[in-house]
Simulated scan of single mutants.
Amino acid sequence: MTGVGGTTAVRLIRASEDIPVDTPRLPAREAARDELSDPMYHEHDPNLLERGLDRFWDWVGDLFAGAAEAAPGGPLGLVALVLAFVGLAAALWWRLGTPQRAARPPETLFGSTTRGADDHRTAASAHAEAKRWTEAVQERMRALVRSLEDRAVLDPRPGRTADEAAAEAGRLLPAHADRLHAAARVFDDVTYGGRTADESAYTALCTLDLDLGAARPLSAVGRAQGATG
């Protein structure tokens, strides 16, 4: 039998088991934060760059998922749209060629060279034989302008650009003004715009050079009459 003392002890034990352990909330939170701040818990965490990349790829995935839902036909429709865009970009690349660098400001036509027209023509022919059409066009344009200077159609001026030479010569040789301006544009495109010349551009310059050699410029009287007429 259990005596009165034993019964009292059992009651006290049961009562103590029923009393909850109540730890204050704020100290418990601080204790947990201190524990989790230990570096051992973060050895395998991604670094800042990895977290940024993860967010970026999540964004890309969400973007494509949204596009797939919005595209007609679902994912297959999105694939068709992507293929169509790639095909359009390829067609534009083939049609327009490699994107050109921004054109630099026009520089002088002759630079520091002082060669005569025949020397420039010889150099142009050598480049043409080697199918270096860009260099051939440049040298033939220089030969054309130098020839006009030798004939006193243009006053020799070291700092003249191709556009300036075409404009001045066009006023004296109006029948060839359009071709002169076109030749200057070709020279600027291949020299400063990063474009590549071809055989047809070189042949056109050679023909213009020969035609200008046989042309007679307007006299000073004729220019004055044309300006007042």
Rank of each mutant, 00 (worst) to 15 (best):
P105G: 07
D18V: 14
V10H: 09
F85T: 08
H181I: 09
Y202G: 01
L172V: 01
A166P: 05
R132W: 00
W59I: 02
A143P: 05
V21T: 04
A220V: 15
R29D: 12
T134V: 04
P75C: 04
V82C: 11
L36C: 11
R223S: 12
R160N: 09
W57S: 10
S37Q: 13
A102S: 10
W93G: 04
H44D: 15
A89E: 13
L144D: 07
V186Q: 09
G159C: 01
G194C: 03
I19P: 00
C206H: 08
V4D: 00
P156L: 02
P217W: 01
A227P: 04
A214I: 00
A68P: 02
T114P: 06
R25A: 10
R223P: 09
A15Y: 10
R142K: 15
T134L: 03
S200I: 08
Y41P: 06
G74T: 11
Q100H: 10
W59P: 00
L78W: 13
T207L: 07
A130R: 03
G229L: 06
R151P: 03
P46Y: 03
D118Q: 14
R146P: 02
D118I: 13
A201E: 15
F64L: 08
P99G: 07
R216E: 15
Q100S: 11
D18A: 15
R179A: 05
L76D: 15
D54C: 00
R51K: 07
V145I: 11
G226L: 15
S16C: 11
D189N: 02
H42C: 03
E199M: 13
F187L: 04
R121F: 05
M141T: 10
P72W: 15
R195Y: 01
D18S: 13
E50F: 00
T196W: 08
G111N: 05
E30K: 13
L88P: 06
D178V: 09
E107A: 10
A15R: 14
G170L: 06
S147R: 12
G226C: 04
L172Y: 01
R140D: 07
G193I: 03
T98I: 10
W93Y: 05
A32T: 14
T7K: 06
N47E: 09
M40L: 14
A162D: 07
T122E: 13
A166Q: 06
T98D: 11
R51W: 06
R55K: 09
W93T: 01
R146Y: 08
G5L: 08
V190C: 02
L63Q: 10
A143M: 01
A65E: 14
A204L: 11
H44V: 14
R11H: 05
A183W: 02
Y41N: 15
A183E: 04
W57G: 00
L154P: 02
V153D: 01
L49Y: 07
P174Q: 12
D18M: 14
L148I: 01
L36P: 07
V145C: 06
D198C: 05
G213N: 04
P20G: 06
